[in-house]
Design a protein around this nucleic acid. Sequence first.
RNA 1: AGGGCUGUAGCUCAGUUGGUUAGAGCGCUACACUGAUAAUGUAGAGGUCACCAGUUCAACUCUGGUCAGCCCUACCA
Length: 1353
Amino acid sequence: MCAERGLEFNIRLHPLTDMYREFKHLNLPAIDAEVRQFWENEKIFEHSVNQRPKNNAFVFFEGPPSANGKPGIHHVMARTVKDLFCRYNTLKGFRVERKGGWDTHGLPIELQVEKELGITKEDIGKKVTVEEYNAACRQTVMRYKNLWDDLTIRMGYWADLDNPYITFENEYIETVWYLLQRLYNKKTADGLSFLYKGFTIQPFSPAAGTGLSTHELNMPGTYKEVTDISAVAMFKLKHDEASASLFDSADEDVRILAWTTTPWTLPSNVALTVGPNIDYVKIKTLSPYTGAPVSIVLAKARVSGYFNAADENQPLGDFKVGDKKLPYTIAKDGIKGKDLVGVRYQQLLPTPAASTPELEANAFRVIPGDWVTTEDGTGVVHTAPYFGADDFRASKAAGIPFIGLPNDKNADLPWPLVDRQGKFVEEVPEFGGRYVKAEYYSKEEQADKDFKPTDLLIALRLKEDNKAFKIEKYKHNYPHCWRTDKPVLYYPLDSWFVRASAAKERLAELNRTINWQPESTGTGRFGQWLDNLQDWNLSRSRYWGIPLPIWRTDDGEEEICIGSVMELNAEIEKSVKAGFMKSNPYKGVLTDDEPTLEKYVFTGDKKFWDILKSYGRDNRKNPTEAEDLLWQALRNRQLDNYKFRRQHQIGTFIADFACIPAKLVIEVDGEYHGTPEQVEFDQARTAYLNNVGFSVIRFTNQEVMKNLNEVLDKIREFLASPPNPLSIGEGEYSVTPGSSPSPMERGLGGEADLHRPFIDEVVLVSPSGRPMRRETDLIDVWFDSGAMPYAQWGLDYEKLKNGDEKPFKAPFDVSYPATFIAEGVDQTRGWFYTLHAIAGMVYDSVAFKNVVSNGLVLDKNGEKMSKSKGNVVDPFDTLSEFGADATRWYMMSNANPWDNLKFDTSGILEVRNKLFGTMYNTYNFFALYANLDGFKHDEFNVFPYEKRSELDRWVISKLYSLVAEYRAAMDDYDVTKACRAIEDFVDEHLSNWYVRLSRRRFWKASPPSPLSIREGEHNSAPISSPSLMERGLGGEVDKQAAYQTLFECLMVTTQLMASVAPFFADWMYRNLTDPIRGAAKANNSPLRHDSVHLTDLVQPDASKVDQDLEKRMDYAQRICSLALSIRKKEKLRVRQPLQKVLLPVLDEAFIAEVDGVKALILSEINVKELEYVTDASGLLKKGAKANFKTLGAKLGKDMKDAAAMIAGLTNEQINDLEKTGSLAVTLNGNNYSITPEDLVITTEDLPGWKVASEGALTVALDVTLNDALVAEGTARDLVNRIQNLRKDKDFNVTDRIAVRIERHAAIEAAVAQFGAYIQEEVLANSLSLADQVSGETVELNDEVSLVMEVSVV
RNA sequence: AGGGCUGUAGCUCAGUUGGUUAGAGCGCUACACUGAUAAUGUAGAGGUCACCAGUUCAACUCUGGUCAGCCCUACCA
């Protein structure tokens, strides 16, 4: 008996014995903790990556999270997907590097900072400086980094956290600049740059004086239902060649109707847009407000919106202004939109100051637009390009000029007629100076009884001038500025764009090579988005983000786009020479020859490790005077024989002098240490060194130079009585890079920062010698994330100088493009798009080959989780309660990752019980007996498969079918399918069939006892149920086979589970291999690895799969199920043996197949004989049903009649058909020949037997009992009762006992005939009947109770 | 508004190229088993496959439309 059995679960990393560990309970969180510790101690993650060859990479990109918010349960979901495919491919032998990353820029961070500082955007630069503001962002952005790291570790997400890329680092920013420069230099076939400045119509809040991002526009409550004044304006046509067909006579007043909900845009109207394929009509009617006769043009489908059919063809003369009935006549029908294109009209509300010849020549005409509909309005869209994005596009496409006040800098882009405060410019007649929206006036002004919104005034003007057809109030949703709560205008703003539209086709083409999971996201959401790709607006007028690296002269004539810090430096040097700048603040930043200590130390990054050393070497060569002086006194163990080192690396720092044995660091400060940043840096350094056990003594240069002896005395003093015991000798320091506070944690920026405001101070010189200033925009943070494949490595200046197309640091060359990425489906147009767009445009490549987009995590009622609803699930609580594995498995198996998950912890419980509980039980079962028998798996002495029993070979076959299925699903990135296949195997096949049927094999022959029946003698035992010999090989050999089979099942299943359930699988693996690992290591065998995550994934092995065997076993399972259901119906307990089961023969192979599993069946259903019935017996009554699949194709319309006919076939007809192989049939005059394949033949009945059937399979059971059967049943009941007593009394499994039973007629026969059997089963040395027994009273059945005495001998 | 996903048992989900008895697990009910035992097994009840039309001999499956939930993108005038 294992020493550990009976003890509570305890954590132990290394087994004390060479036995299999046994456990009392399954405790997944405890397993997590144990394995986590093991991974950390043994650096399993690092090994799992490093042991794989570099030239066999599976490339994964981490979509960086932003650490300014807390992680949620949905992150567990997303990261599980990422983690498991990385693990899976590691097991397949790939090297899977997982560089972590942090997204640090963006509006959410800025908004959070503004909230915390209590400021608005307008205050930046006033109440706080840009520098302070950005410093605050820098601090905020990593606020919850610790929580994130904790989650990463606890959920078992393997990623390199020590070495992340961080988007605010100079090196990252620089690489982004490089990419932008490539876009800038890239030209379309027409010579247009891929990075250009242009006008765009953007949401704009005049009240706040700022543009709004789409993010801001999507904030809750932004869209409000408002009532605006809408106008249908009448645009009077000019009579010319283009419009001639619309005129009946030259003096006819023909007008086009157009509807608007923003009348204030009418003075800016320059075009009318019609749908080219929409039908329009000309109607003769009267102007409703003036009564003047007019001919109007509008979409035919919209006529009913303005006219009542009853008024058609009524005399016009009857109408009086104010009448509701407006008579009309359709004067011309069948006008297509395209017929209207080119027709000119008179400007509706002219602004003389805005008039230009260009405008007169090219504006005020009808243009086409595909987006025009006839759902409302008139089917004609009033088009004012400055105030509508669609309008803007349509006008541009049609070559319509813009309208506005003359712009002397750019004649093509006149100033809008509405200014940035939302007022009409003064030059607009009648309305100049008025706010275009009523809401922009103060409450008092709006409350005035004479107050009229501008829209209304314009509408009234139109009415008066006979230019309005209909004025009415209109309710609709309109976006509002979330900050000021006032309506947003769409307004033209200067922006920098990426000309993505020019790469549209290529991007779509590249997309078709990507494997999307699910596919529909790629073809649907993403594909269609690409098909309608617009240019990418990069500009953001914010502060905390990557600055646009473009400098321009004031007139915009000369400009430069900077692609690296190296280039920036060169340009700054020129500028310094030209006198535009005093000095170069970026000197030395990021250049290879001059790495700065601060740069590398602050990033907390591993890559500086080596550089740090060389930095130290360089310092040694160029000591300061004071350092040199001190060194001369310390070197060569001069000072009390202590060995000192100079410029020595300790952790993440270079110490000026260090005495390792004494754990002392001596710093000699130069004058340059006076700046606040350096003081802070020094303090941080001291804190860090103290933290790792070093003391720091600090001297100034002066102290050393003037009083060297005093300095030396102080050092001696310290060495004499060091605060720390001299416990550590010279050797390794386990100081991990990254453990020092990094700048993001400390909020340091510094002058060499490429962010605003520092970069804004750079003024460059143009080729013609004029100053160039930076375009103040930042770039869209999405560009940051899309640039990560390149920027995570940074620029390699050597490659850059050599003109390398991809001048990025190693290992970029083997890390691009990604084999696999994963992220939430909400990233489709975010990260997925930006990755794709940049890769496609810059390198004509995909950025990723396979992508899994996962869905949302909703609460259990299917509602979105939100703080306000209070239904947010804390991932840490979940992990603590259920463990990482059950949570991960639940998330992957419950629904496809791309479907939304209704997160319900009862689902996790289910997974825990069903899968993990079953695996655990199965293992514990194995361990219990393996320990009892001293079984150890021997990798080099595997019992040949072909000699194992049917049952063993069957489960092995199932196992390797599972391996194949699993690998296929995983290779297809379909983890749900893979998980479910494993669940099915573990529960259905391994536990419920294999282990259940094998139980006896493990305990029966052991321990050896005088009374136990040798397998070979089993046939002579009174019980005639199938022997072990029949089931398998029997005896010790069979037992070894059973152990090995079960071991293999557990081991392989464990390995398959390892990707999704990494903790449990490793725990299981180690439990299974602990007793043999020593030997495995010595032999270098497959199980030598310390962790399952270091092993090689089991290969599919077709030779172990036996389809026929699986089919046989399937018969066995179905036959048993049917037989048991008969027992159930007849109320015959399974312990009661029955004499015979009958099976009608289905086909020729049937007998041979069932014979193979006959023993199993008989044992399982406790029946003595199995007999096959054939036609010849005459017992069978057959029925037939049509096989629709084969017959349907043959018969077509006659199918229904055929089905009825076949159902009516007699026994003889069916037998005939089977014998002759065909049956001629005539249906509805058509002749057909029916073959046996066209029928499904079933056995309907076996007269006189109890029958059950499923499909074609039928089972009949002989339920008659005789005395012998009853006695045997009773004997088994007795065994059962005695075993219960053994258990109640807590006897050991191996205890021998004596049994005395009260004499009773009901059991006499059983004991007389089956006494030996009973003794054998219950390990009884004696069994006797007595008149007087003192012991427990046990119910044998409803009528009989017995007293039994059971005692250990 | 457009695009996408989803809709099958009380709940969570399967359902292959269309084929006639639509499955699994959980839950529920009943029973069995009792050397895997705080386990396990068997059986039963439970369905208008969201709705409507169409194609077809035959539709959960294909087509069109409607409805509902969710996501993304959105000033349709």
